[in-house]
């Protein structure tokens, strides 16, 4: 099995590794870097629990090869806030009650982060579009939309 050297930036930190071709980006993050925030919910790109940002765009990390991450920038939920703090977005999720079991939450947060970076003032329809690929079995989704709406406003107000 050939190992491929890769160099990529993860949450602002430069990482170097040698990975087999068949290793997914999700496995690389979870098993090599111990960034276990992104979850495997289905392994088929259907649930969105493994959503991370690849060069700023949300992707399902279970369907990206680690070797495809070479030379690119990856962000995970662990990079959302500094140290032990919470980002505006994370706080909004808490305050709006957008969390129940928490398994879909890291993926939801990253889909929302991707949205807010390309659109600081999203409509509800745009929020729905951004997280339509993230399944949640607990909340019924309403509180999650409210949280993203609230975070968008608070992030705009801060600027």
């Amino acid at each position: 099995m050939t190992l491929h050297p890769i160099r990529l930036t993860v949450n602002g930190k430069s990482e170097e590794a040698s990975v087999p071709a068949a290793m997914t980006l999700l496995e690389f993050l979870r098993e090599r870097l111990y960034l276990t925030g992104a979850k495997e919910g289905c392994g088929a790109g259907e649930c969105g629990a493994c959503t991370v940002l690849l060069d700023g765009l949300p992707v399902t990390a279970c369907l990206v090869l680690a070797v495809e991450g070479d030379g690119r920038e990856v962000r995970t939920v662990e990079g959302e806030a500094k140290a032990t703090g919470l980002s505006v977005l994370q706080r909004a999720f808490i305050e709006e009650g957008a969390i129940q079991c928490g398994f879909c939450t890291p993926g939801m947060i990253m889909s929302a982060r991707g949205l807010l970076e390309r659109n600081s003032n999203p409509t509800d329809a745009e929020i729905v579009e951004a997280i339509a690929g993230n399944l949640c079995r607990c909340t019924g989704y309403e509180a999650i939309v409210a949280a993203i709406r609230r975070a968008a406003k608070e992030e705009r107000d801060r600027r």
């Binding site: 790109g45 969105g48 765009l57 949300p58 992707v59 369907l63 579009e129 690929g133």
Partner: peptide, 9 residues
């Protein structure tokens, strides 16, 4: 086709 995440790939 798929979700937003899928369409980014």
């Amino acid at each position: 086709v798929g979700s937003y995440q899928i369409r980014n790939r």
